[in-house]
Write a protein that binds this DNA or RNA. Sequence first.
RNA 1: UGGGGUAUCGCCAAGUUGGUAAGGCAACGGGUUUUGAUCCCGUCAUUCCCAGGUUCGAGUCCUGGUACCCCAGCCA
Length: 559
Amino acid sequence: MTDRAEIPTNFIRQIIDRDLAEGKNGGKVVTRFPPEPNGYLHIGHAKSICLNFGIAASYGGACHLRFDDTNPEKESDEYVASIKRDVEWLGWRWDGEVRFASDYFELIHDCAVALINAGVAYVDTQSPEDIARQRGDFTHPGQNSPHRDRAVDDNLALFARMRAGDFNEGEAVLRARIDMASPNMNLRDPVLYRIRKVSHHQTGDTWCIYPMYDFTHPISDAIEGITHSLCTLEFEAHRPLYDWTLDNLAGFLASRDRLPARPRQYEFARLNLNYTVMSKRKLKQLVDEGHVNGWGDPRMPTLSGLRRRGYTPEAIRRFCDMAGVARADSTVDTGMLEAAIRDDLNVHAPRAMCVLRPLKLVIENWPAGQVEQLQIAKHPQDESMGFRDVPMTQEIFIDREDFLLEPVRKTKRLVLGDEIRLRGSYVIRANEVLRDAQGEITEIRCTYDPDTLGKNPEGRKVRGVIHWVSAEYGVPCQVRLYDRLFTEANPDRAEQGFLSVLNPDSLTVLEGCRVEPALAGVAPEARFQFEREGYFCVDPDSGAGEMVFNLTVGLRESF
RNA sequence: UGGGGUAUCGCCAAGUUGGUAAGGCAACGGGUUUUGAUCCCGUCAUUCCCAGGUUCGAGUCCUGGUACCCCAGCCA
């Protein structure tokens, strides 16, 4: 998909290069993206997706999409559907069918039985509180459970009863028998199976016992033949358990012919972006409490939000490549994301004119009723995009901010008594302003120089160029301006909590804007550059009644 | 506090037998321009968390510190 040469190397690619050189895994590279369907995907997931799918693509390998659905309480089909859609939208295609860890529940159960038979797993019928208490802490070793040495047959019988539903939630768990004194807390006889009497979005009521992540993941990776299991840094301390599980199950899985590869786990730093939050819990809270309009709100760092905001899959992939992959905790500046989308849209977005805060301007020497269809290039550097018709009439709108009564040093706007170029049109001069009873400027009376279409006036230099839209033909529309969702670079660290630093001005809705008629009726997701303003896309709220545009990102401004 | 990690420019990030600090974002100059956009040119780490040491030579090796992140869910 992407030219490999463009993708900067990173420590994981180097590990794969070395593995390949050593002939490991028969030269195969198989990765997986393993989301839990308990929320929408965000830009942080995009990093993992691009890493996993990108590696598979550049090494001629495969990448699986596997839902890590072992906790039915928090998961749902809505999330499964949104995740599939987002991965595809990003431009990736998973190998084979979508997989679910729940597809493997029977085999995982058999693995548990195998562990019991091997004497390295036991059923603990203590309360969750007792188990927690016995785990000890960083300074004190844990205490062995009184059930740690239960006979294999008893464990088998108890585990069967767990599956049969004989116990209530919390009354019994299956635990690995490792080391209650391990300095690694994850190795202090971790829970492998717990009881959850809730129906599962994939398996319904087939099960009332569910395997834990630490047990499920290595088994799922192994049976899918995953060679490189990439996850984030916080799972580093779990790696010994990942390896313990596979070391203890390799024989069993091989005997069932379900061990195509011995996977290895590698951890990389998750993506953080400043001025936003990335945890699913917090994003869900923003949605549930109505601080934003759903997971797909254009202000959200979710992929659906970025999509509605006007980001392209290409820009997001490019951004992930720009940010890189390493093991150091880091927070990428939002400016890098913006640079990625500007780069893309600058090349691909047709130009158009839209007046956000209309101020009427009447050209007194323009023949009344005359309409001149101007042909303006859709892109100044790409003539293959062609031209669009832009009607020029006696009355037009310009932005209120583009008119000044008094000249300001080096300004490039229209000043009373001076000239300005109308983009793609003529040079005009502002002669007089009309005001209403409150003194508010309501209209500017101008004259135009008929000899300035496509050429500069003789002997004079106009101070600048402003955009405009015909008052008669301009299409009224709504424009939604977005700003960062939070006022602090790191909302997670806010004294009063992340909600206390929500930006009250993250959304500004402008009504009565005027866009040039060439854009009337274009479909949602179409992207344009509104000259001198920024990049905008058509929002799905656009209907027969009114067009709605979302600000994707503003133009760079340098004075 | 025990264990596991990480520290290279404002933000990311290369640097892999020690040989004399890539690139991107941002910023700042200048040029082109009917978008204060784009594009183009240029500037931007005598220094790699700190302190010692080894060496002709260290971001890379050794010793000792410091800071930050992760782990005590029957979450992932």
